[in-house]
């Protein structure tokens, strides 16, 4: 019997994106540049996070025409890269719309203005897979408990500053390492302390990893940033504003793709880091107001 939308099928697509770069794009032209550069997937948006941050106001799901335009442009040029799109935290109707449009992956994203301050989307109800952001293991396991098929660090989107993505990746991998050392009788209390489902805590202790792929996002701007996240345990990298807010997006996009493949080889990294022109200007997260942080959205 054929079964669609099983957890294995959802996680399967996340597995296929490993070792790749998922690039934010806002126009069909950008989507083609990203695909040509070797993006493993594209994230179709109306505005990249740096612009959302600058413009303020309520950030919502993109106009379906923007997403359709990107899907069509890729198909016409025979690129078969998966297309992702963002829904607001808790906005399950936006997610239903994206699923109905044939989007391949939904990002329930803190980059958009949350629609529900208490509850995330029940992602088990969907056939389309979801990715969610997390700053620590408890948050990651809560999202997986709700049905997320992929976790990414939140980092600080639109900042061009990798420090928060590093903090979140180290927090998740550090917590995982600690869990693997715990005796079984401590797991229930650990689940309580993490605010995470017991079964998932037990899985992490036994396997030393999350039950879904663990990617990096939020502030990655250079090939070296991308390789750093891979070295810290990320299995793939999202680049949001970092490509199309830079001076030479096509060259930078290719360089970041190469860096994610050859992240353990500093000679290749040196080669691809040369002559990229200016990176996005960026914002120093340590100088930002608490209220301007996107990463504190979601619970």
């Amino acid at each position: 019997m054929e079964e669609k939308g099983t957890m294995r099928v959802k996680i399967g697509l996340a597995e296929m994106l490993k070792g790749g770069v998922i690039m934010d794009v806002t126009t069909p032209e950008q989507a083609l540049i990203a695909a040509e550069a070797g993006a493993a997937a594209v994230m179709a948006l109306e505005r990249v996070p740096a612009d959302i941050r600058r413009d303020g106001g309520v950030a919502r799901m993109a106009d379906p025409n923007v997403i359709d335009g990107i899907i069509k442009a890729l198909k016409e040029k025979k690129y078969e890269v998966p297309v992702m799109a963002k829904a607001r935290i808790g906005h399950f109707v936006e997610a239903q719309i994206l699923e109905a449009m044939g989007v391949d992956f939904v990002d329930e994203s803190e980059v958009l203005t949350p629609a529900d301050e208490h509850f995330h989307i029940d992602k088990h109800k969907f056939k389309v897979p979801f990715v969610c952001g997390a700053r620590n293991l408890g948050e990651a396991l809560r999202r997986i408990g709700e049905g997320a098929a992929m976790i990414r660090t939140k980092g600080e989107a639109g900042s061009g500053d990798v420090v928060e993505a590093v903090r979140h990746m180290r927090a998740v991998t550090g917590d995982i390492r600690r869990l693997t050392q715990l005796p079984d009788e401590e797991l229930m209390t650990e689940a309580k302390n993490l605010g995470a489902p017991y079964d998932l805590v037990k899985y992490v202790k036994e396997n030393g990893k999350l039950p879904v792929p663990n990617f990096a996002a939020g502030g990655i701007a250079t090939p070296a940033d991308a390789a750093l996240m891979m070295m810290l345990g990320a299995e793939a990298v999202f680049v949001g504003s970092g490509i199309f807010k830079s001076e030479d997006p096509a060259t930078r996009a290719k360089a970041i793709v190469d860096a994610v493949t050859h992240y353990r080889d500093p000679k290749v990294l040196a080669e691809v880091s040369r002559g990229l022109k200016s990176a996005m200007r960026g914002l120093d997260v340590s100088k930002m107001d608490e209220k301007d942080l996107l990463q504190t959205r979601g619970w």
């Binding site: 597995e15 296929m16 994106l17 490993k18 070792g19 790749g20 695909a35 040509e36 550069a37 070797g38 993006a39 493993a40 997937a41 690129y79 078969e80 890269v81 998966p82 290719k254 793709v257 190469d258 493949t261």
Partner: peptide, 14 residues
Amino acid sequence: PGGESTTVSRLMRR
């Protein structure tokens, strides 16, 4: 393995 054919084609050639 499984993956994205455009991505892998470009990296294989390069």
